[in-house]
Amino acid sequence: MPFSSSPAAPVGAQLLIAQPDYAKRLRPLLPDAAFTPDRGTLPVLGLNGAILVLGWAMARQLQVSHWQGLLLFLPFALVMGNAVVVMLFGTHDMMHSKAIRQPQLRQVIQLLGLALLWMPPTLWKAVHNREHHGKTNSEQDPDRNYNASQPASWGKSIQNLFVPSVEVNPFWLSVGMTSAWGVHAFRNITSVLLFNNGSTRYPVFSFQVSRRERRQIGIELAVIVLIHLCIIGFIGLRPVPLLLGYFLPIWIGYSVVIAYIYTNHMACRATDTNDPLINSISLKMPAILDTLHFNFSYHTEHHIFPGMNPEYYPQVRALLQEHYPERFNLLSARQAWQLLRQTPRHYLDANTFASSCGTIIQPCPLS
C-alpha cells in the first residue's frame, strides 16, 4: 500500500517540511568549520583497527586449559566489540564527507572499515547514502519497516522474529541483536548481486544498482570474504579462541550497532516527503558513548546535514530545540526502546502500525 503524504499532509496539527528547507534555514546559523571534513576520524579508525588486530593476536595465544586467561580476555572482547562499532560509525561519517580526497586510499579505508560488517562500500553508498538518505521512511526506503500489505517472505519473517515490537519473543530478540545486521547485509547483497531487477520480494524495498556498481560490489565482497578467512586462519581453527576472539566481538559490535539503528526511524511514521524531524529520532546518550561513537545518537541532526563534522551536531540540536521544539523527536534511549517494544512493526498506512498477524493495530506514537 503506497503511503499517502505530501508537503501539505498534516502530522497532527503540523505540515511536513522537506529536509532542504531545514538545512536552508539552519545553515546560516552554524559556523563554516562545521562543514569542514573531520580529519580526526582516520586516526581513530586506525587505533580501533589496531585494537582488533591486537585482540586477534591475543586470541591466537589463548589456551583452553588456562581458564584465567580466558576470563581475562573477556573484557578485551568488549573493547574489540566497541571497535567494530567505531569502524562502522567512523567509516559511515567519512563516506558522507570528503575527508580523504585520494580515491584509491579512500577506497581501501572504506573497505577495511566496513569489512567486519560484511558491507561492500559500493553497496553502502547505494543503500545508505543514496536510497535511505534520499527517501527516508518513504515507500522507497530499503531501511523502513515492512508494510503489512507486503507478501510473506523469508526477509519479512526474520524481521518479525528479530525486531523489537509488542509481539516479539525476548529470546529471538536477543538472537536478533547479534544477527539482524547480518540479515540486513545479506538481504541487500543477494538482492543486487543475484537479481538486481528492482522487483525482488524479500527485501523491505528492492532497489537497483548500475552494472559498474554491481561488478564493484562483487569484487569488494570477495575481498571481504578473504579478510574474514584470513582472520579465522590467523586465530586458528580452535573453537574457544574463535568464539572469544572472532565471534564474540562481532556479536557485541552488531548488537550495539543495531540497537542504535532500531531507534533511528522504526518508531516514526512514514513520510513520502523527507521530513527528518518527523521520520527520525535523536537520542539523549551519555557523553562517553557520544564521544566513542562519533555522536551517532544525533540522528535527526545527521539527516539534516549528512556531511557535517559530527562534533558540531550538538549545535544543530540546540537550534532544533530553539526553532522546532514541537517537532523534534528527542528521547532517551530507554524511552525510544520502550516505544519499539510497545508497538507493532508493520506499516498499515503511513500513520498506523500493525502486528504481523494483523490483530494489533496502533497509531504511530510520534504522529
Rank of each mutant, 00 (worst) to 15 (best):
Q107P: 00
V108W: 02
L72P: 00
A83N: 09
I158C: 04
V84Y: 05
S157N: 04
S149F: 05
N48D: 03
Q110I: 03
W124P: 01
S157T: 07
A77R: 03
L71K: 06
L71A: 14
V79S: 06
Q61C: 12
S65Y: 03
S97E: 13
Q110V: 00
G90F: 02
K135R: 15
G90A: 09
V84H: 05
N137Y: 07
D93K: 13
H66C: 03
F73W: 09
H132F: 09
F73L: 06
G49P: 12
A57N: 06
L117F: 01
T122V: 05
H132G: 05
L116P: 05
H133A: 11
Q63N: 14
G69S: 12
K125P: 00
L30D: 05
V127I: 14
G90N: 08
Q110D: 10
L123Q: 10
E139S: 15
H66A: 14
R130E: 05
S138R: 09
F73Y: 15
G46M: 14
D141P: 11
F162G: 12
G69C: 00
G81A: 03
G55C: 12
T122I: 08
A148V: 02
A34Y: 02
A34Q: 09
R101E: 15
W118H: 08
G134D: 03
L71Q: 03
P151C: 13
D32M: 00
L42A: 12
P43E: 05
P151R: 08
W124N: 00
A99P: 07
F35I: 01
F35Q: 01
M87T: 01
L105Y: 03
L117A: 11
P142E: 11
G55V: 13
Q61H: 11
G90Q: 03
L62F: 09
G40I: 00
N137W: 03
Q63C: 08
L52H: 12
L116V: 15
V86Q: 02
L78T: 08
I51S: 09
G90T: 04
L78N: 01
L42Q: 07
L54D: 11
L105T: 15
L72A: 15
Q102A: 07
L105R: 11
N48M: 13
G55T: 13
A57E: 09
V64K: 04
N145F: 02
A57F: 13
I51V: 15
W56P: 02
R130M: 00
T41R: 10
L161V: 12
W124F: 14
K125W: 03
Y146G: 01
A34E: 08
L70N: 08
G155W: 08
H128V: 14
V85M: 04
K125T: 11
W56T: 14
L112M: 12
F35C: 00
A34T: 06
S138V: 06
T91A: 08
H96R: 07
G81E: 03
R60A: 14
P37N: 09
W124L: 11
I100D: 02
L62V: 14
T36P: 00
G46H: 01
Q159R: 10
G81H: 00
G55P: 11
N129E: 07
K156E: 09
H66M: 08
T136K: 04
G113C: 06
H128M: 14
Q159F: 04
